[in-house]
Design a protein around this nucleic acid. Structure first.
Lengths: 188, 188
DNA sequence: CAGTGTTTTCTAGCATCGCTAGGATTGCTA
DNA sequence: TAGCAATCCTAGCGATGCTAGAAAACACTG
């Protein structure tokens, strides 16, 4: 039965190549430039092969990329946690800045994936847990969960508004410092 | 020359009908459902007429809708200012909640419009000014401009993450209260 | 080894999208 | 009324996501 095993291994490898190709292309030219035809050409197969791996089509491929992104982000935040809330905040925006297309797939697009529900992937909950870990010490009498959501919203808002050229480029660092000033101390 | 006047008036009226139809359709079925063919059918003209009004095509129509949204938002925030920072924050998320497609056009889509640049429309600056007005009293030694950007990012993040089902629906009000708690007092 | 059946893959095509060229129609002017 | 100018529509282009059905490759059995 090693033949079976090899075949499934080949399949998973090819699925991975699809997602990787999608990510590279999206990061280079944006998700609009990621078409099923280009992806098929990149992996050197025909279009229908994509749908045999991802029946949901392009959306499913983006969702798969988003899941990879969540795994990478949780790793980044885990490392940054030793630098406290300031470190986590900086690491978050740095991640979004380094991989903008991936960040879009994770949060702006990919409406399939849902938070705070039964079928929420563990890796997405893990991201929230990382943020919660640095918020809890400064929550005081405030509810740590909702406060983490607000903190997260601030970071997410900074990222997305900055990307849309809505914020002054000169004050990027100052904004991060203000986030720390407003969230980094106990609020009672 | 009243004929000329009537003709230009008819043209502006028709342009308005295009934008209104786009907004209604987007609010009902999302911007993906807003196609040039449907818009043409709604205003009872053919497709090319749309391009005579908006050479930029669909993007330009969305930008026009976004500009209307900015005007409406600045009005909403102006009214809410008497209720201070808490009132403005609540009014902001309420606006985004009541007109989600319009909000998307204003901030998520419509990359044509840029903030903090020379050609930024006045109505967009006015929105920032409204937020600045309620932040200035609580800025303390902090820079009011960047602090307003952070405050704004928080509101924007709350809106967008909530829309993507990323936040717990049960804590909506509590999150707003926490925003007020973190931004509503002087930070030195 | 030949033949059969299953699985995998590709070719070809559908419906729809944004957008536009060129002709037809309309309305104004002289 | 003839000619001109502005306006509008028909028809079509290229590209999109996606899929049905034929073709090829593979695995297994007698």
């Amino acid at each position: 039965m090693t033949q079976r095993q090899r075949r499934v291994r080949d399949r998973t490898e090819r699925a991975q190549r699809i997602v990787s190709a999608a990510r590279e292309l999206a990061e280079a030219e944006g998700w609009d430039a990621v078409t099923t035809r280009k992806l098929a050409a990149l992996i050197e197969y025909s279009q229908p092969v994509l749908y045999s791996h991802f029946p949901g089509g392009k959306d499913a491929i983006m969702a798969a990329a988003a899941l990879e992104g969540f795994a990478e982000l949780v790793s980044v935040l885990g490392t940054a946690r030793r630098d406290g809330l300031a470190g986590v905040a900086a690491a978050y925006v740095e991640f979004a800045d380094a991989k903008p297309a991936l960040y879009d797939a994770m949060f702006t697009l990919a409406s399939e994936l849902r938070f705070a529900e039964d079928d929420t992937p563990e890796v997405m909950k893990a991201n929230f847990a990382e943020l919660l870990a640095v918020i809890e010490p400064v929550a005081g009498t405030q509810n740590a969960g909702p406060l983490t959501e607000v903190f997260w919203s601030t970071l997410h808002g900074l990222v997305t508004l900055d990307r849309g050229h809505r914020l002054s480029p000169a004050h990027r660092d100052e904004r991060l410092a203000l986030v720390v000033a407003r969230f980094g101390t106990r609020g009672d």
